[in-house]
Simulated assay, not measured.
Amino acid sequence: MSHTMQQTSVSPVELASLPQGARVLIDIRKPRARAASGLAIPGSVWRHPFDAANWAEEFSHCNVALFCVHGHEVSQAVCGYLRDMEIDAVIMEGGFEAWKQAGLPVETLAEADV
């Protein structure tokens, strides 16, 4: 798999199989959706999806993978913005729900680095 700006999405299983640190996993679920699930992906960082202009620079030298609940509008909008900023960003296909359905690890928000 090539990690270039040409790639726009990655499957949860593919993402989970990458070496640790290959991509920064950014949780951009809206606060209410994130709180309602009570779960997070271990090692992911949460950023507010509608505040990307204020946090994008933090990831300017990183390869990132974004996820919202289902990998649709929220992820696509933020990914487009980051890519316009020349940040190597991809969307995790199917979002957080696909990660859970694949049986990949989750933790409670209390355990997560919030």
Rank of each mutant, 00 (worst) to 15 (best):
D88S: 12
A36K: 11
L39D: 10
S2A: 15
S2I: 10
F59W: 01
R34V: 06
S75K: 01
L82K: 06
W46R: 10
L109T: 03
H48Y: 06
G43T: 12
N54V: 07
S17Y: 00
Q7N: 10
Q76S: 10
H3K: 12
A89G: 12
R32M: 07
W55G: 05
I87D: 04
W99F: 05
L25I: 15
D84W: 11
L39Q: 14
V69T: 13
T108N: 08
V13C: 02
V114I: 08
V106R: 02
F50L: 09
A65H: 05
P31Q: 07
D88Q: 12
L18Q: 10
K30L: 12
V78W: 02
A110T: 07
E107T: 07
I91D: 11
M1G: 14
V13F: 07
E14P: 01
Q76N: 10
R29V: 10
D51Q: 14
D27N: 12
W46M: 10
L109A: 06
T8C: 00
L109S: 06
A36Y: 03
E107V: 10
E86C: 11
M1T: 13
L39P: 06
S44Q: 07
S75N: 00
S17N: 09
L66A: 03
A98G: 05
R34A: 13
D113L: 10
R34Q: 08
G103A: 05
L25Y: 05
N54E: 13
Q101K: 14
R47T: 03
F59L: 05
K30V: 09
F96H: 01
G38K: 04
Q20A: 07
V114Q: 11
H70F: 07
P31V: 08
R83K: 15
E73C: 07
G38D: 02
E111K: 14
S75W: 00
V74K: 03
A110C: 00
K100R: 15
T8Q: 11
W46F: 12
R47M: 12
S60F: 05
C68R: 03
V24C: 11
L104V: 03
R83P: 14
I26V: 15
A40W: 08
Q20C: 00
A112V: 01
V10A: 01
E73S: 13
R83W: 04
H48P: 13
E107C: 14
Q6E: 15
Q7S: 11
E57D: 15
C62E: 15
C68M: 05
V69E: 15
R34F: 07
R23E: 09
N63D: 13
D88P: 03
L104Q: 01
A102R: 01
I41R: 08
M92G: 03
I26K: 09
A53I: 08
P12W: 02
L15T: 07
E97W: 00
G43Q: 11
S75R: 01
Q7M: 15
A112L: 00
F67E: 00
Q20L: 04
K100P: 02
S44K: 07
A22W: 03
G21R: 05
